[in-house]
Nucleic acid binder design. Sequence first.
DNA 1: CTGTTAGCGCATTCAT
DNA 2: ATGAATGCGCTAACAG
Lengths: 336, 336
Amino acid sequence: MSGPVTIRDVARAAEVSPATVSRTFLRPEKVDPATRERILDAAARLDYRPNRAAQSLITGLTGNIGIVVPDLANPFFPSVVKGIQGRAEELGYSALLVDTDEDLKRESELVAALSRQVDGLVLCSARMADEDLVALREQRPLVLINRQVPGVAAVTFDNEGGIAQEVVHLKALGHRRIGYVAGPSTSYSSRVRQAAATAELAREGLVEVPIGSFAPSFDGGRSAAEKVLLADVTAVMVYNDVMALGLVNQLTRYGISVPNDISVVGYDDIEFASMSNPPLTTVRIPREHAGALAMSYLHALMGSSGPAPEPPARLPTKLVFRGTSVRAPSAPPAGD
Amino acid sequence: MSGPVTIRDVARAAEVSPATVSRTFLRPEKVDPATRERILDAAARLDYRPNRAAQSLITGLTGNIGIVVPDLANPFFPSVVKGIQGRAEELGYSALLVDTDEDLKRESELVAALSRQVDGLVLCSARMADEDLVALREQRPLVLINRQVPGVAAVTFDNEGGIAQEVVHLKALGHRRIGYVAGPSTSYSSRVRQAAATAELAREGLVEVPIGSFAPSFDGGRSAAEKVLLADVTAVMVYNDVMALGLVNQLTRYGISVPNDISVVGYDDIEFASMSNPPLTTVRIPREHAGALAMSYLHALMGSSGPAPEPPARLPTKLVFRGTSVRAPSAPPAGD
DNA sequence: CTGTTAGCGCATTCAT
DNA sequence: ATGAATGCGCTAACAG
């Protein structure tokens, strides 16, 4: 006879109407303090919990947000997800997670399906076409992370700044011919970083030696090693840390010492960057913070009322100087 | 006037009653092929999507499952989550993810809140008390991963087997005095592995040298280094890979060569185990598979009907012989 | 095989 | 400030 306790049970216990109980939770100020007390009391005593489905049915809101990532096994994403989920928690939302497995088609389908089950979406490093993203944005509040599309809210990273810091760092160490190992050309951030590298290297009067595009994996980095050897460079900038780690690994197998023969700089500052041997010089990007920020922003977008939310953020990046970069072997002694 | 298209719109378009439309989706065989065709057609034309909230309200089911992890930033969990989510996807469920931040109190609260929003739960490496887990199981279908509690379904790993393989491996390499670096004593799997190590080492007639308990982090592993040095051992078994990596790192700083002076064996086979230098000898456990299996099992538990689901699984573990373990320095030449 | 009726639990008019 | 009535979209009996 018990079943889940409903709003009517509480109403009966507090000797009021269901409507008043409802008000007590939604607009407490619109109910007399005394009766409010009585109702809250009864609710607590009966351990009443509003039925989400019923609320949903009537309000059209679910209290859920959706998180979409290309691949949770990619060490870049767990922190981002953690940031989103944590903030969602604080704001009273539950988070639905979807992994698209880097499959563009799946991504579109999954996002479409997911969008109908949530009040808003956070897409991490979305692979979808700009137009699809814009279309999606029409239907649900939407925030992108690590992807920029005109007209869509986004939390991005200052990649140009990060790349610039890498370039200045390597230049200061006396490097002149610098290789760039790119990620997949289908990746938005790879394109951005690649372009930034080309621009910055040119601006600083250094020689860019393009090494090519490789899979953004440890093995992808490894397979770049031969080309790096052939490129006659003293330093290499790599699309991301995982690839950089792979490159260092393979270079070492070839008998090349990193950093003594060749300096290597990664990107992302994943946890393992500092644990590897030697620890990787890289660019730190605030992943978890980005997640939290994106969620905060999404919350503002979902707010029925509220002021116009502040503009999307572009988070700072920071070079972390560790063990895989040193003064160029051929460089003149410091002081020149 | 359009709004979301409802079951009545479809009914009108197909000139049938709403009930028939409903049946067409739930029990297609109970409706005439001709009309079914007509309805499906209309539904497709109108792009009808059933309203989940309404379905939920009536069936009491949400179509969601909950995933709880202690810390997504711990490299152990993303794969597990990926396995769960992927299988959930296939089975038609959406996955709600919660990160408890290793906070026992939060875990209880979050799980309680989450449990009312889902049809079933998968808890990864739950920290909660046995009794709470049993209580939870009364309310919702529940599957544990990497934790065993009497009366609760679970997917576990054959830790005893994994530890036994480590011991045999080290014994074969001529090691006699072997250190064991434990994780936090609050961790279920740490206790299990510790106990297994003690038992196996004894059985093989080797000397166990307990190094102590440390945080299950890179720094935790590092801080075990001094004690390892003092322990006069030729090999160390470590609770998990992250710690093992930290230990190797710090040992190296002390001028100790791994594996030449001391062999180190980790556990878990996280991605970075094979990327580190030297690559870590460790025990592989099928994390993603465990996730998928747990989800399959949960599905069976949630099935209103269906046969009694097969018993929970205990997945095999496998030693992966890589670069941090070699023949003991003091060992007599092979062949003795 | 199909339509009719009823109601899931709640938020929201509109009265009072 | 509170209550009675209505319906969100759908499924589950029961008739026909």
